[in-house]
Simulated scan of single mutants.
Amino acid sequence: MHIAQWIAAIPPLAVYVTIGLIVMIESLGIPIPGEIALVSATLLTIHPSSAVEWEYIAIAASAGAIIGDSIGYSIGRKGGKPLFEWLGRKFPKHFGPSHVATAERAFAKWGMWTVFFGRFIALLRIFAGPLAGALHMRYPKFLIANALGGIVWATGTTALIHYVGEVAEKWLSGFAWVGLGVALIAGVCVSLYVKHRAGKAMAAPAEEEPAELR
């Protein structure tokens, strides 16, 4: 099947629901590649044969991020620190003591903004909700940072990939797969740069008094 026919056959609703669920599951604290799925889905929007629209992908991802983080917050609030100790024993690669310590330092230094910036950093993205709950951050503060982070991350990522890909598609219209590949590489490079800058600031040891989380 030609790529144009394959893309045209994908039901847009299925794409939106799938992306929303993947992002929500990742935001719960389960380490799955939500950002890769978001980028991949957005790449579909640059092809003329696709009925998938990047605006709806952004809405679905935003909703998934906000809902998933809120559920993760509730889980962390109920489970507390013992939950992370148990996860560290079961999944040391993702929830080891060093990872938890890094996330806690970020919360101590930045408070609610850790939730906002954490949406752009893979490690903090899975920790933000549950750890905010475990540290008893006040929910109104958490919700504001959670909503802002989810919307900015989802909308910024999808808009960037879509418009960069659109330009690439015009220049490489005769090579559909090449156009998609160029868009993916450009999007990943920008995403990695943003993560590097944000991660460098957030992972630095706290030099100030812990921010008030309550």
Rank of each mutant, 00 (worst) to 15 (best):
G149V: 08
E212F: 11
V39N: 02
L135T: 06
T157F: 09
S70Q: 10
E207S: 14
G150V: 07
H136T: 12
S173R: 08
L213R: 07
A101Y: 09
G76M: 01
V182K: 04
R89C: 06
G156N: 02
A8V: 06
G96Q: 09
W110L: 04
V23K: 01
K78S: 13
M112G: 10
T18E: 07
G179Y: 04
T18K: 02
R125W: 09
F117S: 01
A132L: 03
A14H: 07
D69V: 02
W171M: 14
A128N: 06
K78D: 11
F120E: 00
V194N: 05
I75K: 04
L131K: 01
G79N: 05
G149C: 07
T157C: 09
P82M: 06
R77P: 14
Y56D: 08
L148A: 13
A63P: 03
K93A: 15
Q5W: 11
P33M: 15
L13E: 14
I75R: 00
P33K: 14
Y193C: 11
L87D: 02
E209F: 13
K93C: 08
S98K: 15
E169N: 09
A211S: 08
F107V: 00
P48Y: 11
A9I: 08
L135K: 02
K170T: 13
V167K: 07
M137H: 11
F95L: 10
G72W: 03
H136A: 11
A154P: 00
I7W: 04
G187T: 10
L148G: 06
E35V: 13
L13H: 04
L43R: 06
I30V: 14
T114A: 02
T155K: 04
L180I: 11
M1E: 09
L213H: 06
E212C: 13
A147E: 11
A203F: 12
A128D: 00
I22D: 04
L83G: 04
G179E: 01
S62C: 10
L213S: 08
A204Q: 11
L160S: 09
A211C: 10
I59N: 05
P92N: 10
S191V: 09
N146R: 01
I36F: 12
A63N: 05
H196Y: 15
H196S: 12
H162A: 07
I161F: 11
I144G: 07
W153L: 00
P48A: 12
A203H: 08
A58H: 05
L44Q: 02
S98L: 15
I126M: 06
W86V: 12
I126Y: 03
W171I: 15
P12A: 03
F127M: 04
L192V: 13
L160R: 01
L131H: 06
E85A: 09
L123Y: 01
P140N: 06
G118K: 01
G156H: 09
S191H: 12
E53I: 10
I30C: 03
V194I: 15
V23W: 10
E169L: 13
L83A: 03
K93Q: 10
L148K: 02
V178M: 14
F120C: 01
W113R: 05
L44P: 02
V52M: 03
T157R: 02
I185M: 15
G80T: 08
G199M: 02
H196T: 11
L180Y: 13
L28P: 01
W153V: 00
I25D: 01
A101W: 11
K78C: 08
G64K: 00
S98W: 08
R197I: 14
F120Q: 00
E208W: 06
V100W: 05
